[in-house]
Amino acid sequence: MSVSLAERPVAWAEGTRLLVRVGTFCLVELQKLRHDRSELLTRMIQPVLWLVVFGQTFTRLRAIPSGDVPYLDFLSAGIIAQSALFVSIFYGIQIIWERDAGVLTKLMVTPTPRAALVTGKAFAAGIRSLAQALAILVVSLLLGVRFTANPLKLLGVVVVVLLGAAFFCCLSVTIAGLVLKRDRLMGIGQAIMMPLFFASNALYPIAVMPHWLQVVSAVNPLSYEVNALRGLLLGTPTVLWLDFTVLVVATIAAITAASALLGRLTR
């Protein structure tokens, strides 16, 4: 049934209000960085070490086939995706902390939709990941990696990082809604973080994986994020519409699941 002309302004107002609330929650999350900017610096150490130590060492060893692309270039896109994963996968701990501090209960009794709260946190995770991605790009350039300078492709990189971080943030919140405890979430987060990373093409091409791992990689959103980043930054062959479709669908599904389970944390 089509929306009548009288209903359209109301629907537009509701949509605008929802976007404003999402933006507000996102800004609230980012304000926390002002009180502890060292968090960004400490989180940058690990991805930079992957590039400087692992990347340069395996470039010299030529142990991992990366086609016509130097291995350090090949790895850099994977490390950008890895940093988004590592930033976002423990966002559920923050939700549980807010529950324990009574903040989440106060937010839940407001008329704000749960999806707005979850989406705001998801894209705050994405902006944090963008800060790390920028640092990784700078370090990569200093190491001699050649990235595209096409502004449209760089804008695509921003969208890919935001979607990837949003998905893993909402996955973490979904798990938090299931396990309800910080210590359980930390254990599960550690248990799934590295398998997600190693079961993707962040470090090596899918072609060199055993068959069963190729199957796992094919359903791992991180693989599509890495494919999109390599295609945009390095021009490697990929199906960008498929990469973006998988990331968008996965993110929407994760936001839906996290929003549905958020209420369990306040019971």
Rank of each mutant, 00 (worst) to 15 (best):
V53A: 10
G156M: 04
M1W: 11
A116W: 01
T256F: 08
W212T: 07
T245V: 15
A166G: 03
L75F: 00
E14W: 13
L40A: 09
A13E: 15
L30W: 15
F86R: 06
F147L: 07
A6L: 14
A115P: 05
V173N: 01
A133P: 00
C26T: 10
V53W: 09
R43N: 12
N227G: 11
D36S: 15
A228G: 02
Y224G: 04
P47M: 07
A77N: 02
G231N: 03
S66E: 09
A218R: 09
L143C: 02
L154S: 03
V138H: 03
V179D: 04
D243R: 00
G164I: 02
E98M: 14
S129M: 07
G144R: 05
V179M: 03
L41Y: 11
Q46H: 14
W50K: 08
F54D: 05
R99N: 12
G187H: 14
F74S: 07
V118C: 00
T112L: 14
P237Q: 04
T105K: 13
V48Y: 04
M108G: 03
G144H: 04
A116E: 02
A125E: 05
E225D: 15
I45E: 11
Q46N: 12
V161Q: 01
A202L: 07
I64W: 13
S129T: 08
G235D: 12
A77E: 06
R21I: 11
A260Q: 11
A257R: 05
L234G: 01
A125N: 04
R128M: 09
L240Y: 03
T236Q: 08
V20I: 15
I255W: 12
T112V: 12
L104N: 05
I136G: 00
V20W: 15
D73L: 00
F74D: 06
L61S: 02
V215A: 12
P205E: 11
A166Y: 03
R182G: 03
R8D: 06
T256I: 10
V219M: 08
V239A: 10
S140G: 10
N150G: 09
G126H: 06
R146F: 07
A176W: 03
T105M: 15
A253L: 15
F167V: 05
E39N: 11
G15Q: 13
V219G: 05
G144D: 13
R264E: 12
A149E: 14
A84C: 03
F25P: 01
F74I: 10
T148K: 00
F198T: 06
I64H: 06
V173G: 01
R99F: 04
L72M: 01
P195Y: 05
L152C: 15
A149K: 08
S200W: 08
T110V: 10
P151L: 08
T57R: 15
E98Q: 14
V159P: 02
A258D: 12
W97T: 13
V161A: 01
T24V: 15
D73H: 01
G15M: 13
G67N: 10
A116P: 05
A6N: 10
G231R: 04
G126I: 10
P65H: 09
I252G: 07
A124P: 01
R60C: 04
I95Q: 02
I206H: 11
D68Y: 09
V145Y: 02
L240E: 05
S259W: 08
F244W: 09
D73E: 03
